[in-house]
Simulated scan of single mutants.
Amino acid sequence: MKNLKQWSSFRAFSLLLAGFLLASALPLFGSGAKEKKESLVIRGAVYKGSSGFGAVRLLEDPPELGAGISVEFQVLPTPQEMVARVSSGEVDIAVFPTNLAAKLYNAGTGYRLGGVIGYGILHLLSSDTGIASWADLDGKTVYTVGKGATPDFLLRYFLSRSGVEKQVSIDYSITAAPQLAQALIGGKVEYGVLPEPFATLVSNKAPTVSSVIDFQQSWNDLYGGEEGRSYPITVVVLSSKLLDSHPEVARRFLDAYKASIEWVRANPDDAAALIEKFDIMPAAIAAPAIPNCNLVFLPAVESRPLVEDFLRVLLDFDPASIGGKLPDEGFYFQ
Rank of each mutant, 00 (worst) to 15 (best):
5 K>C: 03
14 S>D: 04
15 L>P: 01
21 L>A: 12
22 L>G: 07
24 S>Q: 10
24 S>M: 09
25 A>K: 14
30 G>W: 12
35 E>C: 05
37 K>T: 08
47 Y>K: 01
47 Y>V: 01
53 F>P: 03
54 G>N: 08
59 L>M: 08
60 E>R: 03
62 P>R: 11
66 G>A: 09
68 G>D: 07
72 E>Q: 08
72 E>V: 08
80 Q>N: 13
90 E>K: 14
91 V>K: 04
95 V>D: 01
97 P>R: 04
97 P>F: 12
99 N>V: 00
100 L>F: 09
103 K>T: 05
104 L>D: 04
104 L>R: 13
107 A>Q: 15
108 G>N: 05
114 G>M: 07
119 Y>K: 03
120 G>L: 12
121 I>A: 13
122 L>M: 09
127 S>N: 15
130 G>A: 10
134 W>V: 07
140 K>A: 10
142 V>A: 07
147 K>S: 02
149 A>Y: 15
152 D>E: 12
152 D>L: 10
153 F>N: 07
154 L>E: 15
161 R>P: 00
170 I>Y: 04
174 I>Q: 08
176 A>Y: 08
177 A>I: 00
183 A>V: 11
183 A>Q: 09
186 G>F: 05
187 G>H: 04
190 E>T: 15
192 G>Y: 14
195 P>C: 01
196 E>W: 04
200 T>K: 10
200 T>I: 05
205 K>H: 03
208 T>C: 06
217 Q>E: 12
218 S>A: 13
229 R>H: 05
236 V>W: 00
239 S>I: 02
244 D>K: 09
260 S>K: 05
262 E>W: 07
263 W>R: 10
264 V>E: 05
273 A>E: 05
274 L>M: 14
274 L>T: 04
280 I>R: 05
281 M>Y: 15
287 A>D: 00
291 P>R: 10
292 N>R: 11
304 R>A: 08
309 D>M: 09
315 L>E: 04
318 D>L: 02
320 A>P: 00
321 S>E: 00
323 G>Q: 03
326 L>V: 02
